[in-house]
Design a protein around this nucleic acid. Structure first.
Lengths: 243, 243
DNA sequence: TTTTGTATTAGTCATAATGACTATATCATA
DNA sequence: TATGATATAGTCATTATGACTAATACAAAA
């Protein structure tokens, strides 16, 4: 930004923009990666699905606006475990009413309370990303593009960071973590190799010295772990096919 | 973005923001990574160094504004080889005069013509990033933070993508490419291992079947290469120490 | 109680990639 | 012709990986 570089420019005469935030909230339900969408109540794109979001207030930081809008529009009272800015969208025609620049945030919520739509939103729902990627659900404005970018970031982040733990509750098994990878990447991973990899990456996981009871279908009880301090994975946990 | 979700909201009554772009232009001169800065001619931060940038026009896309401002403020007539959005900065106090949201772009220029400052800018100069990281040069507004983020992105991108070729002229040697890595990462790389790595990554480089003459200090002539179609490096070219 | 099924966890093995290092090739220049 | 410099090829031990087998520990069925 650099208003004021030109000496004879009136700093008050800037072209006014609306600035908004849009939040792509991801969670995993039934081993499926899902995104939180709301049903629009007013034109344009009335009755279409759209991302939760809204205007940034005059004295509010961008990330603060994202947290606030999330709470207002979706009755999510818990703070997201992860909130990361990933892109800004400002094409002149992206909103038919006026010039709007929107900042996209990626949020992860480990175990989402049943969303019902807050005061602002008519209706909120967790939609499987497969519905969006298959083209069976189309979103308002340029939100398809925004979600596509967020999904790409999520898939890439799982390769290079330990962010996958944010999808899990505080205590989890290595198989829980593997199912996060499988849901986000939409591919199966070898359980043994996955276990070896996350264990040899120091600080990724910390042992709890407890085990779960067996699951519904039996099986050996699994050890419980908590997230470790490591943020980066190097070498990365490479995604099948993606080479 | 979602103005209009709330039924009784007046879509014209949005809080007005100024939207700007700031461009972090990187190039390598004398085996040093450098960033293009301009000297501010007016308050606030008069005579301080700042990033080139300016207001987005009412009917202009964000990336278009970045290219335009770059040309206007720095007399760079060539299009940058790479222009990538990397972050948006919107803290309420980041500009003392008004509420400004700025979108940061990372640009790479392989061989920069001598910058002199265009009509808008008093003075433009290519400053070594070591001067900024050492704290010997401080920038106006929150531009230190913006440059720091851009440098982090550049260092990370060299690990995982083939973007380093954008710092090179169309035809280059593997040692030229290695010196790009050494300049951006500020660390020495083994010439033999580097050569093996970039050669075995298919599509990274394409051979030209020509050689250069020896350099100033003699040495065996090097083969010439051009950038290949590959964009991603997997496995990555891992950075020393950074583990 | 024994068997079966299932998931977790450990281990094997061939292959690939890496870091550190040595050797050779090919030029300019002393 | 010798020397210095750089590019390029090759060696070798170590580590990481993918594919696979085996052992472990539970629930539930027989």
């Amino acid at each position: 930004m650099d208003p004021g570089t030109t000496p004879d420019y009136d700093p008050q005469a800037f072209p006014p923009f609306a600035v908004t935030v849009d939040i792509v909230v991801m969670t995993i339900i039934e081993d499926e990666l899902r995104v939180l969408l709301i049903r629009r109540a007013v034109p344009p794109f009335r009755d279409s699905w759209a991302l939760p979001g809204g205007f940034v207030r005059p004295d509010e930081d961008l990330s603060t606006a994202a947290v606030r809008e999330l709470a207002e529009e979706t009755s999510i009272n818990q703070e997201p475990d992860h909130l990361e800015q990933f892109g800004t969208y400002g094409h002149p025609d992206r909103d038919p009413r006026m010039r709007v620049v929107s900042v996209g945030y990626w949020a992860i919520i480990p175990d989402l309370p049943t969303p019902k739509g807050g005061s602002d939103a008519a209706y909120a729902e967790l939609v499987p990303v497969a519905e969006l990627e298959g083209g069976r659900i189309r979103l308002a404005f340029d939100h398809d593009r925004i979600v596509t970018d967020a999904i790409a970031l999520a898939r890439s982040s799982l390769e290079n960071t330990t962010i996958a733990t944010r999808f899990c509750p505080p205590e989890f098994t290595i198989s829980d973590l593997r199912r996060v990878y499988e849901a986000v990447w939409d591919s199966k991973l070898d359980p043994g190799n996955f276990q070896r990899k996350v264990k040899q990456t120091s600080e990724f996981l910390q042992p709890l010295n407890q085990t779960t009871r067996s699951g519904d279908k039996g099986g050996r009880p699994a050890a419980l772990w908590v997230k470790g301090p490591a943020e980066k994975l190097s070498p990365p946990l490479s995604r099948p096919d993606s080479n």
